[in-house]
Design a protein around this nucleic acid. Sequence first.
RNA 1: GGGCGAUUAGCUCAGAGGAAGAGCGCCAUCCUCACACGAUGGAGGUCGGAGGUUCAAGUCCUCCAUCGCCCACCA
Length: 1004
Amino acid sequence: MKDIGEYNHKKVEIKHSKEWVEKGLYSIEKVKRENKFSVVIPPPNVTGSLHMGHALNVTLQDIVCRWQRMMGKDVVWVPGFDHAGIATQYVVDRQLQNMGKSRLELGREEFLKKVWEWVPVSRSSIKEQLEKIGVSVDWKRERFTLDEGFSRAVRYAFRKLYEDGLIYRGEYIVNWCPYDLTALSDLEVEHEEEEGKLYYIKYPFEDGSGYITVATTRPETMLGDTAVAVNPKDERYKGLLSKRLILPLVNWGRKTLKGQYVGNIIPLIADESVLSEFGTGAVKVTPAHDPNDFEMGKRHNLPFVEVMDEFARMNENAGPYSGLSRYEARKSIVENLEKLGLLEKVEGYRHAVGKCYRCKTVIEPRVSTQWFAKVSDERIKGEAIRVVSEGKVRFIPEGWKKVYLQWMENLKDWCISRQIWWGHRIPVWYCKDCGNENVFTDDDFERPYDKLIFNLIADGRIGYEFLPEELEKVLKEPSFVHPELSVLDLYKKFAFDKYHSMQVDANSLRLFFAQDMNPMAIITEKKNIYRYNRESKSYKFVLRCKKCGSENLQQEKDVLDTWFSSSLWPFAVFGWPERTKSLESLYPTDILITGFDIIFFWVARMVMMGTYFMKDIPFGDVYVHALVRDEKGQKMSKTKGNVIDPLDIIEKYGADALRFTLSILTQQGRDIKLSEKRFEGYKHFANKLWNAGRFILLNLDGDLLQSLPYGAPPKTEDLWILTKLNKTVYRVKEALSNYEFSDACRAIYEFVWSEFCDWYLEMSKLRLYAKPREEGEETRIKQERITAQATLLSVFDRILKLLHPFMPYITEELWKTLPTSYTESISIQEYPKHNPQEVYPEHEEKVERLKGIISAIRSLRSDLRIEPSKRIKLYYRADESEKLVEEFRDHILSLSRLEELTRVEERQASAISGYFRDFEFFIPLEEGIKVDELLTSYRKRYEEVLRSLENIDKKLSNENFLKRAPEEEVEKAKAIKEELTHERDKTAMLIKSLESVKTSAVNS
RNA sequence: GGGCGAUUAGCUCAGAGGAAGAGCGCCAUCCUCACACGAUGGAGGUCGGAGGUUCAAGUCCUCCAUCGCCCACCA
């Protein structure tokens, strides 16, 4: 007997989200491999806060994790964040610009400090959001793609790939963003259709014998042309191939990338790649500013002339155009060509323009020296294709498998270097003396101190020259991801996976350095690593070229593509490259849940790196969910102003409503269109559940558990609800096993609302509120009440558990109020299992029939406009339902609000009748009843029945149907026919009686 | 240029061979002792179009239309 009051989602949710984290409920140290269920979160970027897509993503993961946990698995869900190279740099750069500063004037080191100031801001805001959503991650295992251990893992990965010949450096044409000033991978370029122009330009022959017209969308690149190409089979140009052309406008010397000068006389060459059908069949060749032309330039050994700088401004090779932007230059060049009569024509032309995915600046293809991962190599690509095509890695929905495989088959090498500052600096040190590329990792050093110091230097935490005090300070600082640990502790825990009894105070460091510099050490072959500077009293960490021993080394300035580190995520979070216990017991992970937008960026690369480094898949299942759109189906974006912020929704409707809405809307392979209305709807569901709980608790006897043995045997409706419950449990299990989140939600929703609340709770009131009518009934009533309460409690307990993965907060809160709760959280209770012993088909059928009868009575009442509160007299006739009506007389009386229920032999003259199957009932006619509407509706129904009958007759008179359809189908059709015939007669009779009522009403 | 997905009630979507479903919205009656974030009842669909397979087609096949997405170096 307790009242939990009204549902207040804020009160409920604040209470538990902190509590779950503090109790460390979702933290498991030691995991049994055979019972593990591991998941790594797609780490959110530290660029701001979470949007609805993240909310969907983590909700689905949390549902799976909570479910598996309740199914008894040792669930480890690793959270973390992505440093998100360009994206984060871009965000911080923007902030600086708003303050009137630029990153270029700030310089690398100062800029990085600013980024490090920003990162924790974003991280803690995201972390708070995740906690509010209720994710059951293990925060003790949190990682950051740029934390100390991760950086070390990245260097290991780089080195291994480099030494295996799978990473190389070379001069190629790459996608260059003139705003972010970096190279981009092909994936980071977005192609957008644009209305452009196609310019036809005349290139005169050197000998004055006319000209060739070329077509181009980018006239400004002509300044870098070093040939014109045609298809060798093109008849139009066959005789001209020995001729040379004058490059218009250019009357200055141009310097090639190799430093030679070229003039304005260019050859006409033949190349297979030229399409005769396009334009004039002749194409200008600009090897330094077009990927096709680059290849052609290589094939024909053409000079490479660069005419733009890193900002996409025309450079000194552009003569008088130098200093102009590409678009200014285009305009000016077109004007000048026109003046010279060399512009033949200009056509409108729709074509795709490549843009930077981050800042939307038009990409400029540019020749530069970059690092590439040779992912096209069979050793990487082959395995990554195999594991997916063989089904070891399974995509859900399946359609993505094809998308993945197609992309993989056409894989080109991956440009992994970025000319930005924020990220993992490429661990290569160039020898200025012999030119060797030295890749260092801490493997190159033996003693723990050396390894530690090398890593700190490589990460830019300290300089090559440092004071011991400085070192001590850095090591004692709280680490970024785990402020409860010092940097040194973090290394011990997440990087080295061993406990080193290292002292970190300045004095013991000095002692160590002194040992290193011991004269005895100098005598030996080995050169010492540290060098003392008397003046500054600092120590220098000396790196030497592995080939020539020179100390004249310089580290690569470029950083790695952010996806390079993300691709290591599924094993690096567990401590790779060390063979940690976590790695052994938790890799491969069981499922990856992510959006389809990063299948290539991330999923594919994790498969490549996972299979390469771990010799095993990174995850078994990949569940690919849709993207969240606004109600019109448009992408949510800040500029459009159509963003629905998860935090606002949590505030207004609660995290439970947010989660339930997102998961019920998650259909495989479909975008999710969201409007705020949806959240409101499922908030109502939470409210309904709450009130059901409130009702049950209000009616529970305090000593219920003790009096259970004295309960009466269960009634039909008890067995019915148990049957329905078990069917629901089964449906949910099936749905979740197949990642059908929507089905699972709907099954629970329907059961809770339409069966449990609408019918069972109402029926239970008969026993709960029963008053003795005659003497000696008290005991029976008490016993029956116990059974009703026990059933309510037992079913509700299971409802809460069933629903917990979807709505963790409200279920936790309600469950704790139940007398049956005994552990600290519902989330570590066992998930309800389907129990075939609790399925009673005959009782189910009985109650379903009862529901039909009650609904039919209610329907007629409503049609007759009888007020809901009015109790009426009802007469009935029944055949097979007779016994049922007797058994449930009280239910019918109460649920259809009757005063009397009387059995009669004959239908009554002045009464309106209704029926449900064989159950026919009569409501005595009263004055003021409008029969017209009723008549219309019955007549309509009659027509419908006739039509259906016609169809079924046609079916049954079809010989082929009788011959070929399965027997049960024929039987079913016959049964339907019988029922329809019955209904036709009943309806006809009703109409007749209504008509007579109408005339008699008119007569009177 | 390839590929994928969508098209079912006013809106958002289930249904994947055997009598067209849900939620929201709408209409009517009710503030009935868990819940008006509610109860009860009701209206509303030739399942984008055209062919075909089948005894039987929202459901399988072919073509078409419209919308959306992804991939692709045609200047």
